[in-house]
Nucleic acid binder design. Structure first.
Lengths: 190, 190
DNA sequence: GTCTATAGAAGGATAGAC
DNA sequence: GTCTATCCTTCTATAGAC
């Protein structure tokens, strides 16, 4: 079995994704992680805020690696972009519209309430944008335009998650994916 | 002064937008609404869930009217689309990155925890999509494509809100707005 | 209909034995 | 480092006086 600290982090990430930050209780966390309550404060003396910040960074990094591997599985940047959205749609459907972005819910919740956590979510988004920018630049898109495409990709993905989780469908991911792929194509052609 | 029931609804909408559903306490609500605690359960016997559902519908409707009036202020659908994003960016900045979409935070929070509320958010999004679809169709876009554009507009707006609130900037709204306007232009030309 | 008081559960956090 | 017991606050919700 994984060490206690890791189990707590993983369990929290899963709970955040479904119930958000304020919606996840620490008692719920230790129950899901099969850990005694005290060990939570042993490993995270900063309490819920510290745990939250570490989870945001950890989950953000893992999700980035996952999405990038899906992107890189495409033959080119256009196909890679399309694959990210279709892959996300599959996961969303398979988890009964529960597992979407591990960061977005927390990001909206803490944006005006906890600046430490807000900064953590901002760093994750910036890292995602950087990763995508590099890929588009490598594909031949001029630097400035590459960053715009990257922001567009992340924003379209996040926005589609909001709509599709609420409406329990994958229409938004499909539409947003097609639009993002078209934008990438245009940037490569122009 | 507005009647108690309205004051409660308006105060709750404002609190939801900033702190979300789970992050907003009912005591906080009655304090902000200048109402005694008991009157909350007099007017909303269904408790927090009923209050939440009514607020989602009410705020969703008001926001739709607001956005549509901004859209209609444009000379055509392309300019209208662009105006929606630039207007949103202004409001976001003016409120210190607090007042974005009144629905999105709640939508993500309740998507997997409360089906009544989830349905309320879904109805609001569908209404927004319908409103935008009509406008694009009236501008000459074929029906099926008009709905896709509408979904794209809403998703891009929501996604940009997530990024910009987290990063405390308006870059995503700017990029997403330009992309949405371009997509509308292409649909009108094609 | 208005308002106060309080119940009962759950929240985050801490102390201290082992 | 592990684990239990407990503190204090806050939460939603209810009861009942006026």
């Amino acid at each position: 079995m994984a060490p206690t600290r890791e189990r707590i982090l993983d369990a929290t990430a899963e709970l955040f994704r479904r119930y958000g930050y304020t919606g996840t209780g620490l008692k719920q966390v230790v129950a899901a992680a099969n850990a005694p309550f005290g060990s939570l404060y042993h490993h995270f003396p900063g309490g819920k805020q510290q745990l939250g910040a570490e989870v945001v960074h950890r989950a953000g990094h893992m999700y980035q690696k996952l999405v990038e591997s899906v992107f890189d599985s495409g033959a080119d940047a256009v196909e890679g972009t399309a694959n990210v959205f279709s892959g996300a749609a599959e996961v969303l459907k398979a988890t009964d519209y529960a597992d979407a972005c591990p960061i977005a819910t927390v990001a909206l919740e803490v944006a005006s309430t906890d600046d430490t956590l807000r900064q953590a979510t901002a760093e994750v988004f910036e890292s995602w944008i950087q990763g995508a920018t590099t890929r588009f630049a490598d594909a031949g898109v001029p630097e400035a335009r590459a960053r715009e495409l990257a922001i567009l990709l992340v924003a379209a993905l996040e926005g589609a998650f909001v709509l599709d989780r609420a409406m329990r469908g994958t229409e938004a991911l499909r539409v947003a994916g097609a639009a993002a792929a078209t934008a990438v194509e245009a940037a490569l052609a122009g």
